[in-house]
């Protein structure tokens, strides 16, 4: 089944005038394995602190229970790559400090804020969804000055240097987006269950509004299902700053977990006499692949994301991710072009 982003293509910039020199990868990088140009910064209003993501991606639905015995090494990978994950404190507590990734916490409408959650989060998102996933502004925040005061108070409660964002539906009204951006949030999240033409339009419009009111680098997180890693740079070019990659990662992690389970079931199937006191995870480590080996496809996926971002940046002759914008894209569908403000492929420059 085709994805709406398949109707969008990158167009190459003019060829560089000088080839063969000055095109080496940066020798040093603050984040091992990833070039500085792929970093995404999320600043905090009123603070010097900027949260630095190693890639413009995050995980919003991955949980410890999905990964079972692979969770610790998976989190180590995320920490190394500086990719934040949405999970509870309890899921991270058993991990050694060296395996704890950046964590983002979310609060739904009508839920009390949790002190430990707020104080220890690296990123805090206030969702305009209730826990039953109904969208709406909480009545406590609809008066004129309430929202900026609330955002400011939550940030203060978190210690003053944690980015605080607001989650809206991807097709949110202009007035809602403007209210959100003007409220003093550090980032905006656009959420949807399907990536369709409305989503492209919604991201594009939110970017326009954010550029007008705040600044061109105002972070917009997009949480929409992607089908392949080629969709990621397109999403960035349309207006996202960070993209949720759960839909890309889940098949990979599911396969790793399935392989882990098949490894642990083999000894029991052979002997049929597994003592109840034996730890199944210990058997997996002795008999089959280690969890690091099982997670190699995850590393490959992240490396694939890095490669595809760099290749598109080279294609469009940009040195920073922010340089990937709508000017680099063309739509192959007239309707999509009209909705998103992209030029049609084939139109005269």
């Amino acid at each position: 089944m085709s994805h709406v982003l398949d109707a969008v293509s990158f167009v190459p910039a003019r060829l560089p005038m000088d080839i063969g020199f000055g095109l080496e990868e940066s020798a040093t990088s603050p984040v091992p394995g990833f070039g500085p140009e792929l970093r995404t910064l999320i600043p905090t209003q009123g603070s010097q602190r900027q949260l630095q993501l190693g890639l413009p991606v995050m995980l919003r639905q991955m949980r410890a229970q999905h990964l079972a015995a692979l969770w610790k090494d998976f989190c180590s990978l995320l920490r190394q790559a500086a990719i934040p994950v949405h999970c509870s404190l309890e899921e991270l507590e058993p991990l050694p400090a060296a395996a704890v990734p950046m964590r983002f916490a979310r609060r739904y409408n009508r839920q009390p804020l949790q002190m430990l959650d707020v104080a220890t989060a690296d990123l805090l998102e206030l969702s305009l969804r209730s826990s039953a996933h109904e969208w709406g502004w909480p009545s406590e925040l609809v008066t004129t000055n309430a929202l900026p005061a609330f955002i400011s108070s939550v940030r203060a409660a978190a210690g003053g240097n944690t980015p605080v964002g607001l989650e809206l539906p991807v097709g949110a009204d202009v007035a809602d987006i403007e209210l959100a951006v003007n409220s003093g949030v550090d980032f905006l999240t656009l959420h949807g269950s399907a990536f369709d033409e409305l989503s492209v339009w919604g991201i594009s419009r939110a970017r326009q509004i954010a550029n007008k009111i705040a600044r061109a680098s105002f972070p917009i997180v997009v949480d929409l299902p992607l089908q392949k890693i080629e969709h990621l740079p397109k999403c960035l070019a349309i207006g996202a700053s960070v993209v949720a990659i759960d839909s890309l990662l889940k098949p990979v992690t599911d396969a790793a977990v399935a392989e882990l389970e098949s490894q642990t079931s083999k000894p029991a199937a052979r002997t049929g006499k597994l003592p109840l006191s034996v730890d199944i995870r210990a058997i997996e480590l002795r008999k089959g692949k280690s969890s690091l080996e099982l997670l190699k496809p995850v590393e490959s996926l992240l490396e694939g994301i890095r490669s595809i971002l760099k290749s598109h940046m080279r294609l469009c002759a940009v040195e920073e991710l922010a340089g990937l914008d709508k000017r680099c894209l063309r739509a192959t569908s007239r309707r999509l072009a009209e909705l998103s403000g992209l030029q049609m492929l084939g139109s005269l420059e």
């Binding site: 707020v118 104080a119 900026p148 005061a149 203060a156």
Partner: peptide, 9 residues
């Protein structure tokens, strides 16, 4: 000043 004494423990 909004959020006076927020998160104070």
């Amino acid at each position: 000043m909004p959020g006076f004494a927020s998160g104070l423990d």
